[in-house]
Amino acid sequence: MTVDGGGARGAADKVFRHNGAGTMVIKNFRVEDFGKLYRSCGNCKTQYARHVVIDDVLATVPGKKIVGINTNLGEPEEAGSGPDSTSCLYTAADVAYRP
């Protein structure tokens, strides 16, 4: 699935939840006052490998998380944050902070 353009505001929890298999692409999107922009399903009855690509997204505060993934394909648990060169692939140069 590809979301190209648009925006969301005032999402108390997730803007996008990915329950099926495959890759979700979110690009040219704006989000503000949100819980998570994207969350892969952590405890769906049937689990699949899921991938997400975030490109040219403007996120303004307040916001909690851009992406939440589930690396163990089971009950979700906090395992880390930031790039890990296995499941979460980006560099500091990929993110721009604007005051």
Score class of each variant (00 low, 15 high):
Lys36Met: 14
Gly68Asp: 14
Cys44Leu: 08
Gly35Leu: 15
Asn28Ala: 13
Glu32Pro: 03
Asp33Thr: 09
Ile26Gln: 01
Ser40Ile: 07
Val57Gln: 03
Val52Gly: 13
Ile66Gly: 02
Gly42Leu: 03
Tyr48Ile: 09
Lys65Trp: 07
Ala59Ile: 08
Ile69Ala: 03
Asp55His: 04
Cys44Pro: 11
Ala59His: 02
Lys36Ile: 12
Lys64Pro: 05
Arg39Phe: 01
Leu73Lys: 13
Val53Pro: 13
Val67Glu: 05
Ala49Tyr: 14
Thr60Pro: 07
Ile66Lys: 04
Cys44Thr: 10
Asn43Phe: 13
Lys36Trp: 04
Lys45Gly: 14
Val61Ala: 15
Tyr48Leu: 01
Asn72Ser: 10
Ala59Asp: 03
Thr46Glu: 06
Asp55Arg: 14
His51Cys: 15
Lys45Ser: 15
Arg39Val: 05
Val61Thr: 12
Ile69Met: 06
Ala49Val: 14
Asp33Arg: 13
Asp56Pro: 07
Asp55Ile: 01
Val25Gln: 00
Asn72Asp: 11
Gly68His: 06
Lys27Ile: 11
Met24Pro: 12
Lys27Ala: 06
Val31Arg: 04
Gln47Thr: 10
Cys41Glu: 09
Asn43Lys: 14
Ile26Arg: 02
Val61His: 07
Phe34Thr: 02
Leu58Ala: 13
Gly35Phe: 12
Met24Lys: 11
Val57Tyr: 02
Ile66Asn: 10
